[in-house]
Amino acid sequence: MKAKEIAKLLKAVPITYTLWDEYAQEREFTKAFATDLMSDVLAMCQDDFDITVLITGLAADQTFRTLEMLDMTFAILVRGKYPPDEFIQMAVDMDIVLLGTDYSMYEACGILYANGLGGAI
């Protein structure tokens, strides 16, 4: 599923808007993982992190550190949460595209799963 389709389904808006260019919108993601616990993200056993999107409610710097460690580049922040400016800058510096949606994590996962985005393990 293209990033722009994920954004449309979740009525999501870019938070790292400088990175939300045509290239980012056209990128394909085929898996998703949802949690607020970063060690759960770090416990994933797979190699294709570059096509996995993280859905989280954790608007903290450690979200971006975790993504950086795993070479993940795309995250959706749920429930209308918005990180402080310095954390957004951190995400930009790490080339991490961050979108925000007003949907809850449960709703966001349900919508994406129903539209064919499978779960990462």
Partner: peptide
């Protein structure tokens, strides 16, 4: 926990 840690997966992840 506010930082996103405390899942009880730290050392098991390191070991893995």
């Amino acid at each position: 926990r506010a930082m996103g840690f405390g899942a009880g997966m730290g050392l098991p992840n390191i070991l893995r």
